[in-house]
Design a protein around this nucleic acid. Structure first.
Lengths: 214, 214
DNA sequence: GCGTAACCTTACGGGCGAGTAGGTATGCTC
DNA sequence: GAGCATACCTACTCGCCCGTAAGGTTACGC
């Protein structure tokens, strides 16, 4: 026949990646429920049964997206952070890697951050990843604090780490919505907020309510 | 008949509030799509057609939830912040009001923060509220900076404000997941991070990358 | 060149849930 | 206590979309 049409036969591994790409794209735009398997299949240039054959049901497909994007992100960060560097250098490299990842994978970020958060079955999965990040940050703070001979309650540490992670995510979201923004510069800005604020804590400065009016 | 059953006839305004209460509850747990109008109606102790009669379609119902919770939150904050106070006092009161609101309306917060964010039609609505908050925070920073005779680019200001708002939201989320946590104390913690970090900026301290290795 | 296994399709079943049609009871006004 | 408006219900329609059955086509071993 003429036009042995664009339907090239491809090995499974390749198709799977194409499907995941399409799924991430569609899920990020529509959300889990509003996304249709038909649209994902069409966007991947393949028919629906193939998706079921390779990646399974819709939930499993979403989880697969979560895993791929989450792993990529974690590896990007872990790969940038050498454990024997001083704390601020580690933080800086981690932030740079993180914002770099978000800038390069906006769809993936949207799935991780905006979509998976609300839907019950997946929220736990995400909370786990987030918790690991918080733990790492808290560890860095704790390490730095002890080096100064100071110490802070575990909950306080966790909460501050939470705040820092939240601030970072928020900036990532800002970045995702401003395609022209520079990841590097955004990382520098975040570094300023984080390191300077943390520096105060390290120095033992604290704010407390004034007259404590009822 | 015996048992003139619990079906009391109630005026419209009351039912509407009950429905909104139920809707917020169900939406917060299930998310927009997974929530069913039947479940909302049942939870409100009423039948489905009443919901349609009073609040309209599912989307309209969700928007109504967004509006009620959003307005409540904004009013709680605005009511706590007197405009002629010093900046740190205003920030402190705003934070206290905010965390107080979240602690008292965890479901409402979940709808605003976790659910509305991903779904396309509503994201804009939310982004607007968020933008107003960011603007207010940026305004406070700018005001404080000018009082010190310093000045900062508009984008920088916006980005820092974004980070602070993000950190605050993140802590709110932490609060929502820890029912025993104290909103007041959480607000104090956030105040520490925000004010101390901001204080550094006010003082003109900045962090910058060291040797700038490629 | 022919079997066989993997790749890929069209076309359908079936359930779930948004939205509605049409009717019943209750309170309020005069 | 007749009339009317408003609160309220049961029971349906209908479309969308997940998931699958059954069959066609390309490559590859031998």
């Amino acid at each position: 026949m003429a036009t042995p049409p664009t339907f090239k036969r491809l090995p499974r591994a390749v198709r799977e990646q194409q499907m995941l790409d399409a799924a991430v794209k569609v899920f990020s735009r529509r959300g889990f429920h509003a996304a249709s398997m038909d649209e994902i299949a069409e966007d991947a240039g393949i028919s629906k049964p193939m998706v079921y054959a390779y990646l399974g049901t819709k939930e499993e497909l979403f989880v697969a997206c979560l895993h791929r994007e989450g792993t990529r992100m974690m590896q990007a960060i872990a790969g940038a952070v050498a454990p024997d560097l001083p704390a601020d250098e580690r933080l800086w490299r981690g932030l740079r890697a993180f914002f770099g990842f978000v800038g390069a994978h906006r769809d993936g970020w949207a799935v991780l951050y905006r979509q998976a958060r609300g839907e019950q079955p997946f929220a736990r999965e995400l909370a786990g990843m987030r918790a690991r990040l918080v733990e790492v940050v808290a560890g860095m703070l704790d390490h730095a604090l002890r080096a100064e001979g100071r110490e802070v309650g575990e909950t306080d540490l966790e909460v501050v780490a939470y705040a820092l992670v939240g601030a970072t995510e928020s900036l990532a979201d800002w970045l995702a919505d401003h395609p022209d923004a520079d990841p590097e510069k955004t990382a520098t800005r975040m570094m300023n907020v984080a390191w300077l604020g943390a520096g105060q804590l390290l120095a033992g400065v604290t704010w407390h309510p004034r007259a404590t009016p009822a």
